[in-house]
């Protein structure tokens, strides 16, 4: 059943119009040229993994997709990034609205120092997604259910989110992102601070989320990329070296650098 769905999806992505298209993207941090001419199409309702050694620019590129690099004063982004055909670096685009559409989960769980409920309700509240309290309750419950946290959290919604365990905190952050009803979910090494059991739970969750969102995940772990993603992009020294079906990247990579990385010779 699972495998069938996977095949179906992979076939779909080839026919669908891409959700995100990036052309000739360059990123500079001051004098450092961090991203060099990256071209990539990211499909809807797919998990795309960015892999590569530390400092290869995969997180930097991820942060271009919701303009989080704008918050770093020395960062400069060039090139063309479109979501649903719309240039997100156009002057008319409000980065704040863009980030509501493109949610993000960070490397270290960063729940706000508020109650679990308020953490999840944060996005819906600032974007006015609910008409009344019961509406908001429903959004919060749905988001927590989607993040597989409802059963653990339903009796302690008013307790601080920082009191949860690391894995629960990261799922809370995912719920928080999901509650804002994004179309794309960016995840920057979401499991790097978690133990294996919590990692497995989050990976399962990512696979669930694929049905509704386009998920882009940056990961250090090649096993994780192989487990959760349908497409994989390999970054090295700021270049996008190879991009394709996950199965193909891991079994018969075309570029020798990809092969060395996957077999553990570099990185």
């Amino acid at each position: 059943m699972y495998d069938m769905r996977l095949t179906e999806r992979v076939l779909d992505t080839e026919t669908d119009k891409p959700k995100i298209t990036a052309k000739g993207v360059q990123v500079y941090y001051g004098d450092t040229h961090a991203i060099k001419d990256v071209n990539v199409d990211i499909a809807d309702k797919t998990v795309t993994a960015f892999i590569g050694p530390s400092g290869c620019g995969k997180s930097t590129f991820l942060r271009c997709l919701n303009r989080m690099n704008d918050t770093i004063s020395i960062a400069r982004v060039e090139g063309d990034i479109r979501i649903d055909g719309e240039d997100i670096y156009d002057k008319r685009v409000d980065p704040v609205q863009l980030r509501a559409k493109v949610g993000m989960v960070f490397q270290k769980p960063n729940p706000f120092p508020k109650s679990i409920y308020d953490n999840v309700a944060y996005g819906p509240r600032i974007h006015g997604l609910s008409r009344n309290k019961s509406d908001l309750d429903e959004i919060v419950e749905n988001a927590l259910r989607r993040a597989a946290l409802w059963d653990e959290a339903k009796d302690r919604l008013s307790q601080p989110g920082t009191g949860l365990s690391g894995g629960q905190q990261q799922r809370l952050c995912i719920a928080r992102a999901v509650a804002t009803a994004p179309e794309i979910l960016l995840m920057d090494e979401p499991c790097s601070a978690l133990d294996p059991i919590a990692t497995a739970q989050v990976e399962e969750l990512i696979d669930e989320l694929r049905q509704s969102y386009s998920v882009v995940i940056v990961t250090h772990s090649m096993q994780q990329a192989a487990r959760v993603s349908q497409k994989t992009a390999f970054f090295h020294l700021g270049h996008l070296v190879e991009y394709g079906e996950t199965g193909k990247i891991f079994t018969s990579p075309e570029d020798p650098r990809t092969e060395s990385y996957i077999s553990g010779r570099i990185g």
Partner: peptide, 26 residues
């Protein structure tokens, strides 16, 4: 921590919303 600001901005909050609802309470 910067992670608080990132988390809030990443959810589509403006700078002033982030300050009012996350940073000042913290």
């Amino acid at each position: 921590p910067q992670a608080m600001r990132d988390g809030s901005l990443g959810l589509g909050a403006t700078k002033s919303e982030t300050i009012r609802q996350v940073i000042v309470p913290a």
